[in-house]
Design a protein around this nucleic acid. Structure first.
Lengths: 247, 247
DNA sequence: ATTGTCAGTTATACCCTCTAACTAAACTGA
DNA sequence: TCAGTTTAGTTAGAGGGTATAACTGACAAT
């Protein structure tokens, strides 16, 4: 199906992608601070202000890049889920492993999305594609967990045993996701997410290097805990560090 | 005891502190990017390059600031531990609460040390006062946990059930801390540290705002888990959000 | 009183973001 | 075909950043 876009538009999209590509390479090889409009312009072979034809501002470019990384990470997780035949629980674990694999292979990008140069813009501007990509990323894991919940409910805490403030927040979030999960299951979801994402962030931000050089077994233990919490049978990954990528 | 330092040296130290103070205020009120040599110079009322008499470079200043924050956080934790009469376990929990209290009161500073503008310098330069302050911070929690271990040992995993790579790393770290804890207890220590510090980082980096607005009960649940792991009796904090600070 | 050290200055080189004003090419429609 | 518009690119420049060099004045020590 020949996409009905003008030649100009095609060129434009190509240049946009080339700019992001250059920015990404600068990030990977020279660090966050090297991702400047001028440096990117030099890289793609145009002079400074020309980049502003493509991205309104440096912030704008940063957001676009962040969104791209989120999307790539999300795609890698979805691909891993789709490639895994088995129970929803097994797919969930496969997605978690894919998340770490992507993060470990792309530490600069993962660090960038976690501790973005333009921090906490998320909240300020919920319309941005960056924010939407972030939400979609979180939702990927949530959706898979919902599937687990629906096919084989896991143990949940009794609502009346929870802290009142906590309960209120769980109810709010349960509503925010259109009741996809009841508050007590939301609690378990967030418990898993905090362990998983938190551990990964600490690994990528080098906060555990004082003790661990190889975090893979630590991550696997974390998955084991999550499996227990979700009544999923834990299976050690056979091909421990496998190839392939979805980027 | 009149410190035998020259008047010049006293003035110099005062200026150094004033520069850090200005830098900190810029960080708090205008964000990471506003912490520039020039802006600081304006703030303290000297012109640009004069600051280089006090700090060799921007990086140098950043490191000094980071070290200061680490030290303040460490001091707050130690103070909370010292102020708590009770078992070593109760002191450990008091220190953990103090850590969060400091982080919540000083989010800019906590975020700064976690995701420093000059990332992962830690490893590159283990002589820097910044790195040493970071180590001292981690050691504060470790030391307290050692006291717990020595007065009332907690359950530990069997060494032969652990992943071989993980075991090797635990043994290495156990040696690195001069056998203060055996490898199996190190494993539990790191488990606690990852939960505690990881959760805090996610909170301060706003990674959980999509679901939680008040993280205090979530943190308390985390403490409860840690108590269980360490065979400490969990006690809900009575004066839930108390005053006082050690800064 | 002289001499060296130290805090501060200005000037400058080079990088950054972003705007303004301009040029040239490519598309569009009569 | 040929204006007219849109678009991609240019250079010039304002304003701010890091950092160095060269200089000035205050202070301390012999």
């Amino acid at each position: 199906m020949a996409t009905q876009v003008s030649r100009r538009e095609r060129l434009r999209q190509a240049t946009l992608a080339e700019i992001r590509e250059a920015a990404r390479n600068l990030l990977i090889y020279k660090g966050t601070a090297a991702v400047t409009i001028n440096a990117i312009a030099r890289e793609v072979g145009m002079s400074g202000p020309a980049v502003y034809r493509y991205y309104e501002s440096h912030d704008d470019l940063v957001s676009a890049l962040t969104a791209e990384f989120y999307e790539e990470l999300t795609a890698a997780m979805k691909a891993a889920g789709a490639a895994t035949s088995g129970t929803p629980g097994q797919r969930l674990i496969a997605m978690a492993r894919a998340m770490r694999t992507w993060a470990v292979r792309h530490p600069a990008e993962f660090g960038w999305v976690f501790a973005s140069p333009v921090p906490a813009v998320d909240i300020r501007n919920p319309e941005s594609s960056r924010h939407q990509a972030g939400v979609a990323f979180g939702k990927t894991f949530l959706d898979q967990l919902v599937e687990v919940w629906e096919t084989k409910p896991f143990a949940v805490p009794a609502l009346d045993e929870l802290d009142p403030s906590l309960l209120r927040q769980l109810q709010d979030y349960s509503e925010a996701i259109d009741g996809l999960l009841p508050p007590e299951a939301v609690h378990v979801f967030l418990w898993c997410w905090i362990r998983l994402y938190g551990l990964l962030c600490m690994e990528i931000m080098n906060q555990l290097a004082f003790a661990y050089s190889d975090m893979e077994p630590v991550f696997e233990e974390c998955l084991e805990e999550i499996c227990e919490k979700l009544s999923i049978r834990y299976e050690r990954c056979i091909s421990q560090r496998r190839g392939r990528d979805a980027s």
